[in-house]
Amino acid sequence: MNIFRLAGDMTHLMSVLVLLLKIHTIKSCAGISLKTQELYALVFAARYLDIFTHYYSLYNTVMKLIFLGSSFSILWYMKRHKVVRRSYDKDQDTFRHHFLVLPCLVLALLINEKFTFKEVMWTFSIYLEAVAILPQLVLLQRTRNVDNLTGQYVFLLGAYRGLYIINWIYRYFAEPTYSTHWITWISGLLQTLLYADFFYYYINSVKNNVRLQLPA
């Protein structure tokens, strides 16, 4: 495993931990999109179907368990925890996320590397992950004033995607057996581009040491 891949996984892990920290210690999920969290839980559930059938490494299995466990506990907190769920911005978080799921499933049925259940589900998770952040970005845009932890959460997620792209470029040149993976690459690139606008405002706010505020 190369340094970019590891750094990508670590920023991904940190993003989830920042979110859980916010929810667990402040007992608030204000500014967090439940729609995006539901999509991520679905992404992990669909992608990690091989968790008990195919062994890659201890690292791989442990990380998969962490991502599955954390995404479903975030859902539990936001839907069931009696204090946390009251801070959920339900009226602002109105993105029709179900309309993302169906096109991704259709696309996975049409464009995949192998027409098997596991492979189609894996491809579906790749497509869905590319757009899963949209409800969160729309919610940030609506709230405009973004608190520090929510800003850091989205920033870390974007950093994870950016590092994965560098990891693919590195693997392409460094590993002789590594072939082209258009489905993952194009989806990953699209996903990273979705963060570009947010990144611009986030970095400016850090540089000027002011609270992150998105334009209307």
Binding site: R5, D50, H54, Y56, M63, K64, E113, E119, Y164, S179
Partner: peptide, 10 residues
Amino acid sequence: HDGTKLKDEL
């Protein structure tokens, strides 16, 4: 090429 090759990533 094995379609499951990239699955070592998360």
